[in-house]
Every structure is written in C-alpha cells, then in structure tokens.
C-alpha cells in the first residue's frame, strides 16, 4: 500500500555534487553520502564498504548473486498485468504499467523460475522494487502462487527474495485477494512438508509482509532492512510521536522475535545453502555431490 514511501535513508541529497560526478565511475552511498569507486561498490555486492548500507538490487542482480551460474530457468514469463478495473488516479494505471516496464526493464515486479543454489534445486521468486515499488497485484500474486504450486508438484523447496511496499492499490480488492491466494499456496506447500525460506530485503512491508513473506519456515533478512506492516509515516501520523531510532529495521524485528537471522548480503548464498542442506536430506534435490557443504563461493556481480 505504501510503495512510494520515502526511504528513511534518503537524507538530503546534494544534486549539485552528484552532477559533478562523471557517470559510471563513482557512486554516492544513499546512507552515508560517501563517494565510492563504483567498481568497489559493485564488487561489494552493492553494499557500501564504509557504512554497510545495502543498496537495492534489481531482480537480475539478485538472481546472479544467489543462484549457480547458468541455472536460472525463468517460468511464467507469459503472465502479464492488465488494468482490469480501468483504474485512473492522477494517471491511468495502464500508463503507470508502461512506465514501470521501461523503468525496471521487467514485465512485472517479480521473476520466478527454477534454479540451483550450490547444487540444490529450488523454485525461486525474486521481487524487484523498481516495478511500482515491488507492489503485489494479480500478476505478482499469481506468479508467487505458481512458485509454490510448481514446488509442490516437483517436490522442491522454495526460496522467495522479497521486497515490496505492499499490495498494489490500482488493483484494489484484487490485490488484497492475492494475500489470501499466496498464503494458501504457502499453506499447501507446508502441508506437504516442503521447505520454504523467505528472504526479506529493504523494504518488505504491508500486504506482502502480511502474507507469504511472513510465512517462511525460516525467515532471513538483510542488515538494516525496513520490515513491518504499516509504513513508518502512517504510524507516525497515527500516534503523533517521533518513532524510535531503528524502529522496524531488521535488528528491531529480530529482537521482537519475528526473524530467524540477519545477514550481510555476501553471506546470503551460504546461509541459503546451509538451510537447504538441513531440510533437503531426503529429497532428490542434490546434484553432482555438491551438497552438504556450506558454500564459500559468493559470486561477484
């Protein structure tokens, strides 16, 4: 619901400074505003080496980082959004969809498919915040549901890498119903005793957090990600108080018992591999005898 909410980290930009930085060489950290050599930044998986701020990854970057090279086989690429309610606010929804497609270079806010993680076969979904704030409409709901159904059918574990501002308002009640659809899909996988690992990245809130993202057997979060139900601005308006520092950040959420583990991005693949190695013993998901070892390989994007 709150996908356009201002990031807490976008403190005072200095455009005049940025203008003087030649494209493609330098990057200014959104958090500490330090100027970084872009190669260092990229090699550090888009994590600021100075302040550890985890900048956003797009779906392709995330997939490259998490799955074994060349193993991602995308599915359901033909499931596309439509403006079935003819929703018009300040702009028609169909125009917003077009803009989002151009901007994110995606057909929707998620990519799904088969992949291997250090040899473990999984069905994976990776969300992309650049597409209308990673919001969940009918297509995201459908593709997430199919991830779980495919996994159920093939007896594979599921990994979802989440980032979303919530449900997509322009699809109104249909987007709310995706919360039910996806949660039921998780329930069915769970009944079949197949593992589901949910990875929360900055930000994961509202409708997505109040459905499949919260329902992982294990829930992993990146450092300092914004995680919650209501957006901080809404809460601030409701209670008329300044929110405590670190409110709704990964560390806060873990402290209150709603996360299993917080990780630095470079450890994500290793953590996923370990989790899969615990839960996938009796399933035919191990390939080429690679499994059983925690992976040390972190591919550089």
């Amino acid at each position: 619901m709150t996908w356009f909410r201002k990031e807490q980290f976008t403190v005072l930009k200095a455009p005049q400074l940025k203008d003087r930085i030649p494209d493609g060489l330098w990057y200014k950290c959104d958090n500490c505003l330090n100027i970084l050599y872009i190669k260092d930044f990229m090699q550090n998986l888009k994590v600021c080496p100075r302040c550890n701020f985890h900048a956003r990854l797009n779906a392709d970057e995330r997939i490259a980082m998490v799955v074994d090279e060349g193993t991602f086989q995308e599915i359901d690429t033909n499931v596309l959004p439509t403006d079935s309610l003819k929703f018009v606010d300040s702009k028609p929804y169909c125009e917003r969809l077009e803009t989002a497609k151009q901007k994110a270079n995606m057909t929707e806010a998620i990519k799904t498919g088969f992949a291997e993680i250090n040899g473990y076969k999984v069905v994976i979904g990776v969300m992309d915040f650049a597409f209308i704030g990673g919001s969940m409409g009918s297509v995201v709901g459908e593709k997430v549901t199919r991830v779980f159904e495919t996994a159920l059918d093939k007896k594979l574990p599921v990994t979802m890498v989440c980032t979303s501002g919530g449900a997509r308002m322009q699809e109104a009640i249909l987007s709310l119903m995706q919360m039910a659809k996806t949660s039921i899909a998780v329930a069915r996988l769970s009944e079949a005793r197949l593992p589901y690992i949910s990875v929360l990245t900055n930000p994961t809130t509202a409708g997505v957090m109040a459905s499949f993202a919260s329902l992982g057997d294990v829930i992993v979060a990146e450092l300092n990600a914004l995680i919650g139900f209501a957006g901080p601005r809404v809460i601030q308006q409701t209670i008329n108080q300044i929110l405590p520092k670190g409110f709704q950040r990964s560390e806060f959420v873990l402290e209150h018992g709603f996360l299993d583990i917080i990780i630095h991005r470079r450890d994500l693949k290793k953590v996923l591999t370990n989790l899969l190695s615990y839960f996938c013993l009796d399933q035919n998901t191990r390939l080429k005898g690679k499994a059983g070892k925690g992976a040390d390989v972190i591919e550089v994007i």
Partner: peptide
C-alpha cells in the same frame, strides 16, 4: 484497518495477519 502503532509492530502485526490467513485456509 489493523492498528498501525508501535506496539502492534513490536508484536508482529504482519505475522499475525499472515498466519491467520494461512491457518484459516486449513
């Protein structure tokens, strides 16, 4: 709506709703 407040977030509003949906389905 579900209450958007500090206590609600501390006690896992999102988790509570998600879990209810999943459990009600079953």
């Amino acid at each position: 709506g579900a209450y958007p407040g500090i206590g609600a977030e501390e006690r896992g509003q999102a988790e509570a709703i998600a879990r209810n949906i999943k459990e009600m389905a079953l």
